[in-house]
């Protein structure tokens, strides 16, 4: 991982918290990152489609799942943004929805490659 990537990850992910959650099991962390890398992009796409259609029920459901995944890996800031989207979905509030989605997309844009690199380094 690059020094820049390292700083990004430290900023985006609460590594201390996630290490407590996996009980310092780096192998497990690597496995979880693998699941995240596989599951996250299609879910994000489903959310993007729901936002485009203003299908608020699905906005709520998809952002809820994304929030769970993000908080599971302690990607705290992005998890908070997903939570905002979930709330908007629940309240059927379409105004500003696309903007919040863009914020989320930006927050997670560099996440996957950096997490991937971190997972490689974490392997025992």
């Amino acid at each position: 991982m690059t020094q820049q990537g390292d700083r990004f990850l430290q900023k985006a992910v609460n590594l201390g918290e996630v290490l407590i959650r996996v009980e310092n099991d780096h192998e497990l962390l690597s496995e979880l990152i693998g699941i995240f890398k596989k599951d996250f992009p299609p879910l994000l796409q489903l959310l993007q489609e729901a936002v485009a259609r203003e299908d608020m029920e699905n906005v709520e459901a998809r952002s809820h799942t994304l929030k769970g995944m993000l908080s599971g890996l302690s990607v705290t800031k992005a998890a908070a943004t997903a939570s905002r989207l979930e709330q908007m979905g629940r309240e059927r509030k379409t105004s500003g929805l696309a903007d919040v989605l863009t914020i989320l997309e930006n927050e997670v844009a560099d996440l996957l490659p950096e997490l991937g690199a971190y997972a490689e380094e974490s392997k025992p």
Binding site: E23, L32, I35, G68, M69, G72
Partner: peptide, 17 residues
Amino acid sequence: ADDDGLSRRLLEKTLER
């Protein structure tokens, strides 16, 4: 029971331990 594979695996491992 969790549709999020990441949470499911994490719980599974924690509880197996």
